[in-house]
Amino acid sequence: MTRMTRTPLRSTQLGLALVAVASLTLTACGGESDPLSAGGDDSGETIVIGSQDYYSNEIIAEAYAQALEAADIEVERDFKIGQREAYLPEIENGSIDLFPEYTGPLLQIWKPDTQARLADDVYGELVDAADAKGLTVLDQSPATDQDSYVVTREFAEKYGLETIDDLTKVTEKMTFGANSEAESRPNGPKGLKDTYGVDVAFTPIEDGGGPLTVKALKDGDIQLAIIYTGDPSIKKNDLVTLEDTKGLFLASHVVPVASDDVSDKAAGIVNKVSAAMSPEDLVDLDARSVDEQLPAATIAKDWLEKEGLL
């Protein structure tokens, strides 16, 4: 039987009051300076830079951020925010001001029926498509990071594969592994069937062509995967990239998407970063991220210094 006195109850009330106050304070802090809140347009000088939940993209975003900061422009980092489907609405509504994107894949979202395949055509159409959304794409970089179909060296040699077209020579059943969005994208299994007449089964691996995809290839669980051309694991694991002779993939150069909040001065700085980045640079940057396990900020800083941009 519980004994009741007045004193313990008062301290109970005190405790509950403390909890209530703490709860209000926390909620208030959360609302005030909450970098997660995704609503509305942050006006003012600060440029909100976003990045995909993809380490390579984050390094590029970090390079933009540091180059801008070096010119005393205030930036806010809102990195690692999922795949295109998750963050695109926020670029379109202006809550993110600057985002490293890729010309081909972005154009395919904004203009799904596009026929453009070559770099300059894709870029040209992308400029118009962005304009229609009230956005600007800055200069495209020479750096490319493009989806590509890869197979293991062993598999390629077994069937003499050099191009995607050669896959029709494969007599065994093939399973294709990639992020689940690939299943419905025009260059996924449907594209393989329509463009090349190749039938594949599909299995999702949500690591964006990362280590698990490579492991699945080597284990023989899958025969075909989409891995970015910028990914150092292609070279490291001796994978073979199949040439896309019929234009399944659009040219995909790194390109910054910008809102009105990005001033001409800021745009100029970002353009310089883009111009300095070669395709080989990007592979090297990615390699440092995966092999040396360095944070994006460090990798971006070293590269900017090497290029004399800091």
Partner: peptide
């Protein structure tokens, strides 16, 4: 489970989430 295998109802979630469907 659908994060790394072709299994279960999670497939609809991930596929839908990632293609804005």
């Amino acid at each position: 489970a659908a994060y790394i295998s072709d299994t279960g109802l999670g497939r609809y979630l991930f596929a839908g989430l990632k293609s804005r469907d």
